[in-house]
Design a protein around this nucleic acid. Structure first.
Length: 245
DNA sequence: TGGAATGTTGGAAC
DNA sequence: CGTTCCAACATTCC
């Protein structure tokens, strides 16, 4: 389900549990002992890209929603529960199809928010510098690299490449400096647009390339293929998206 | 109705 | 031992 902006919304919706203490915890998680969460107070929630970080003081639980992750607040659905948490005021939350991991120590040591597109600490220079050492990687891969564009997912990738008129297989090193800057800035601005549209419930109607059949600029058919390291679905227009070489 | 999809991980294989 | 590959996870939509 989620790319970075959705995690911001998740964090807001789950904020009601911050400051409350877990009275009961169960589920099908195998990566750690769920009973560790009992009697622990949820101190704060943070996000790093697509990671939801639940700070319990001594440790942090990282939740990843993968493709189909979802949660239900004060309600359930008829599927196996990955994690059920009940709090001291009787409220509860169920997580389904999520991946959980326990992180010891402080999360500040583990995560760098300078690359997190949705973070206040996001820093263009840091990203520009990282990209410099990746000259032979195609842009479609670099945009999905969570250590470079933390929080960007496949939809954002397709839309950003369309907006910047860059062919997905263009290598980073072949982009003129001005274009490279535009790529970075558009990744951020589009991600904020994504968040606004997600809140409005109008995200899909704003897709110009992702899952589209025809280029809205010149009305010729989009190309669709599975590109890059992870063979992710790419939609692009051979006419208006330039392949720099 | 089967296959693909807003994603990542961990372990096998090489 | 480093890298690459692939199954696994799980649900909804077309």
């Amino acid at each position: 389900m989620p790319e970075g902006p959705s995690l911001i919304i998740f964090k807001e919706e789950l904020q009601q549990f911050v400051g409350k203490t877990v009275t009961s915890a169960s589920g099908s998680i195998k990566s750690f002992d769920i009973s560790m969460l009992e009697d622990k107070k949820l101190k704060r929630l943070k996000t790093w890209g697509k990671h939801l970080l639940c700070d319990f003081g001594d440790f942090t639980m990282r939740i990843h929603f993968l493709m189909f992750g979802v949660y239900y607040i004060n309600s359930s659905k008829d599927k196996p529960v990955r994690l059920y948490l009940e709090f001291d005021d009787g409220s509860y939350v169920n997580f389904y199809s999520t991946a959980h991991k326990l992180l010891e120590g402080t999360i500040e040591e583990v995560y760098d928010w300078k690359t997190d597109v949705m973070s206040e600490e996001w820093d263009e220079k840091t990203v520009a510098k990282k990209i410099k050492s990746m000259s032979d990687r195609p842009v479609c891969d670099v945009l999905l690299d969570q250590d470079v564009f933390t929080g960007v997912g496949n939809i954002i990738k397709n839309e950003v490449l369309f907006l910047t008129k860059i062919h997905p297989l263009t290598q980073i090193g072949d982009l003129p400096p001005k274009k490279r800057k535009e790529l970075i800035e558009t990744a951020v601005s589009y991600t904020y647009d994504f968040l606004d549209w997600k809140r409005e419930g109008t995200l899909r109607s704003h897709w110009q390339a992702h899952r589209q059949k025809t280029c809205p600029r010149d009305h010729i058919p989009f190309h669709k293929d599975y590109l890059g390291e992870n063979k992710r679905q790419s939609f692009w227009c051979e006419e208006c998206q330039k392949r720099y070489e």
